[in-house]
Structure formats: C-alpha cells, structure tokens
Design a protein around this nucleic acid. Structure first.
Lengths: 221, 221
DNA sequence: CGACCATTTGATATGGATCAAGCGATGTGG
DNA sequence: CCACATCGCTTGATCCATATCAAATGGTCG
C-alpha cells in the first residue's frame, strides 16, 4: 500500500545523504545528531520529541525488566526509521550500539507535513506498516527452536547488509541473545554448530560469512 | 500521535454501529460480511482486497509452519481493525474464531479516501501505530515464563472486555497456547495455579473471573 | 444415555538456562 | 616490548521449566 516512499529505502544500506534532502519528504525537516557507542537516544516513558532515521551506525530499542532481563525489540541500520509512537511517551528505550549518526525529525513538524502533504502521510504509513510486519515476523520467534532463531537472524541480517554473504555484526552476542530471547551461550553454540556444519564461516566473531544459505533456510523453515 | 481517531475505538468493545457511519471516516465505504466459526477470512499470500473492522465475534491472524506448529499473531475483538499490509499480498491468514460479522473496506477506496482527507490518513496511521505497539508488547513474551505469559494474556483480555473482571474467552486453550508460544497443557496448568492461588475463578473453562488483579500483575512484571 | 470434543491432570523427557571454566584478542603500564 | 589485566566469546557440566506422551474428567449435543 502506498509504496512510493522516498525515505526509509535508501539505494544502499550504508548510504547517508550527502546533498540537501529532496523537497516533499520528511528529510527536509531533520537535524543530524551524533551518538556515541552505548549512549541512550531516548528512555522508556520519556516524552516523544523526534522521529529518527539512521544515517550511520546501529541502534537497538529495548525494554529492561526490574529483574534485569532485557528484551531487544529491534535493530536499526542505516536507512531505517524508528521512534513511531502512538502516545506522547516512548514505550521502549533506544541506544546507539556503535558510534552513530541520526537524522532527528521533530515530531510536530512531521505531523504537520503529513497533514499538508498526503504523499508524505502515505510514506509514513507505509513505513509504519513495514515496521509492523517486522514486528510480526519477530513474534513468530516464540514457536521456534534456538537454531531456527539464530538462522533466521543471520538471514535477516544478510538481507539487510550490502554484501549479503558477508555480515558484519555491530552488536554483541548478548545483544543478539536479548533480541532472540535466548542466552549468549545458546547463540554462541548455535553459531558453532552452523560452522561445524559448514553453513557459515567465522573469520572473526563479529564477521560471519554465509556459505550455505539453503541449510540456514531449512532450519529457518 | 494524531489521536483524534473516530474509528477503531468504539465506546464499548461489544458495540456494532447501528446507524449509518459518520462522514469523514473509513466506515462510510464498508460492506458488512458474515463469517461462520472457523472459516477463513483470507489466506497467507492471498491478494489484499479489504481492510476489516470487527463488528461482532472474534478473529485470529496466524501462520502455520509445514510441521504443523502454528503461531497466532493477534486476536481481534469488536471495534478492532485488521488487515494492514505493506505489499499487495497478505503475510498472515485470518480466521473467524466464532460466528462473526466484519465490516469490509475496499483497500483502494481506503487509500483514496486517505489521500483526499488527511484526518482519515491520520486515523489510519494512528491505528497502525497502535497495532505496532501491540505487536511489540507481544515480542516481549519471548523472555517471559509460562505463568507471566498467561497472566499477561488475562490482563490484556480484561482490559479489552466490557466488564473487566469477567472475561469470556471466545478462543480455545489451543488458540491461547499458540498465541503465547506455549502448549495447551501449560496454559491449563498456569490457569489452575492461578485458581489455586485465588487470583482467578473459573466458573467454566471459557469464563474467567479476576479476583486478584495485583497478583496477576506481579507475575506479569 | 452415549459419543465426541475440550480441558485438566499426571508421568516422563528434553532443550535451553545456569553455573563455571578456559581462551583469544585488545589494550595498558612497567 | 613484554607481562598481565580486561573483555567478549566459546566450551563444558548440570539443572530445571516446559514439552511430550498418556490418561482421566467434564461438558455438549444427538
């Protein structure tokens, strides 16, 4: 529906806009903000001020329980937009995983622009629906085994990275575990199993090479 | 954001509109359709034709794996709108859980109306964001124990039902299990534990009375 | 009443969590 | 330049929550 979005779908996942943003998109009302590794972008229950687009780096949104368990809701890579909220408070917190640059768009300005320009409204809606689908995919995790979750994660990251066979993970094993609802140890074991089965190679722990996509896809079934 | 929606938020969850729909809302372009218990409303990969609003009954959206495991993505009660899709194919299937009446809104007509009327566009966007938040809440399940999941489910159903202390479940234990990523047996055992702890009463298996909301909330932490 | 289906209850098995130790890369101070 | 501390990751051993398998119970409809 309304697939003519000019935002949130950069030609390449690593691109940052170097020229002035085109008219008629939300990019025209943004300000670039830098965030250092592991710093908070916004906290749970904080007032919503901006909508963000990742220009460089990687962001996680999450919730932490009193007992310390953390659930990561999503990872955002360059080109992705996050921070959609129904009310005026954030329901999740967001942190930069590595040094990052974000385009921050004032919420009120976005809403005003959407009210005036129906194509902008359409773009925002399409992006929200895309985000909803990603969330629905993640819901499907609960019925999956540990291997299926990790295989699915690798395929998702592959799809989202420039060179789809070489994945450079910005996040730690703990982040992956908290995203998938597993422990760090289980994630690590699954990766070792994939390596032993020659489905992947692990030149370094943060660099994964997909060698047998089909094998992963079978697990992901 | 844009919280002035006139749709998807009926004054009472059991209400169906008896009068002609108000102008300036998507309700004006809908047709009422009946669906019998356990019949399919649309299937995975089917072409998207409508957006639906539940008037009466209950709908589940789900995905079934080849091996038979089923994951339910959401339950929709009267007043709820479902069927938002980014592409032109459904990514989930939808079935009526009990005999139901739906208001079916032609997708193209909805999009056209949204393009013309920014307040309708805003309503649709707000509804999609609300749906996104519901999905994000469900993602939080993966880190939870069985008791926490069931307690959370009861509180959610309570919030959505007319009389918040008396929940009438339209869905089976198997449906609940597939929604929470548990087995039927585990759901049943959790309910029995809550009953033994005097947190709930179970006059019949489909009728649950909340007796100690705080106890459930503690579990839901 | 009897057949059927949904739910509950019981007994056992198992996948992933937990606890604990080892390892390799990176950085720091002597 | 090297000893050594630190941090992130991997590997191993054990435990436990939930799945699985199986049977009993209860409610509904002919």
């Amino acid at each position: 529906m309304l697939t003519h979005a000019t935002i949130g779908r950069p030609t390449s996942p690593q691109d940052a806009p170097s020229a002035p943003a085109p008219a008629g998109t939300i990019d025209m009302i943004g300000a670039v903000m830098p965030f250092a590794r592991n710093t908070e972008i916004y906290g749970e229950n904080e007032r919503v001020k901006y909508l963000y687009r990742v220009l460089k780096g990687c962001v996680r949104t999450s919730k932490v329980h009193e007992d310390g368990r953390r659930q990561i809701a999503a990872f955002y890579l360059p080109g992705d937009v996050f921070g959609f909220e129904a009310g005026d408070r954030h329901t999740l917190s967001a942190e930069a995983i590595v040094d990052s640059q974000l385009l921050a768009l004032r919420r009120a300005a976005v809403a005003a622009l959407a009210a005036r320009d129906s194509s902008v409204a359409g773009q925002l809606w399409a992006m929200t629906i895309a985000e909803l689908h990603r969330a629905q995919d993640q819901i499907m995790l609960v019925v999956r085994t540990a291997q299926e979750r990790v295989a699915g994660f690798l395929l998702e990251m592959s799809r989202r990275s420039r060179d789809s066979d070489h994945i450079n993970l910005p996040m730690s094993r703990q982040d992956i575990a908290d995203y998938l609802g597993l422990t760090m140890e289980t994630v690590s074991r699954a990766l070792t199993q994939f390596k032993d089965a020659k489905a992947i190679a692990l030149p370094t722990s943060r660099h994964i090479v997909l060698r047998d996509r089909e094998a992963l896809r079978r697990l992901n079934a």
